[in-house]
């Protein structure tokens, strides 16, 4: 987490503008096995360290970002648009 998040579209913006969803996991294929789906919906690595997380720039460009950061130090390594890419460092 940071007090400010580097949005690839809007620049460094305060945390208050964002909504956080959780781990940036890929959605399994619709026909993937039940175990894969349960893992996707419920199970989390919950790492102590580097972590990719979905953040939504709700009060900004309204794009979903993958924010890469450290859960122990709160350092933000960067963020990219989930669909468009464009890695941005703080």
């Amino acid at each position: 987490m940071a007090s400010r998040v580097p949005c690839p579209h809007c620049g460094l913006r305060p945390k208050e503008e964002f909504t956080i969803k959780g781990a940036a996991l890929p959605r399994p294929a619709p026909d993937a096995g039940e175990a894969a789906w349960i893992e996707y919906v419920y199970l989390r690595e919950n790492p102590r360290g580097a972590y990719d997380e979905f953040w939504h720039h709700t009060s900004g460009c309204r794009r979903w970002l993958v924010v890469s950061r450290n859960t122990l130090t709160h350092d933000v390594y960067g963020a990219r648009d989930v669909a468009l890419g464009g890695e941005t460092q703080p």
Partner: peptide, 9 residues
């Protein structure tokens, strides 16, 4: 927000 997630992510 949910629809945007579906559309973008």
């Amino acid at each position: 927000t949910h629809l945007e997630f579906c559309a973008q992510a």
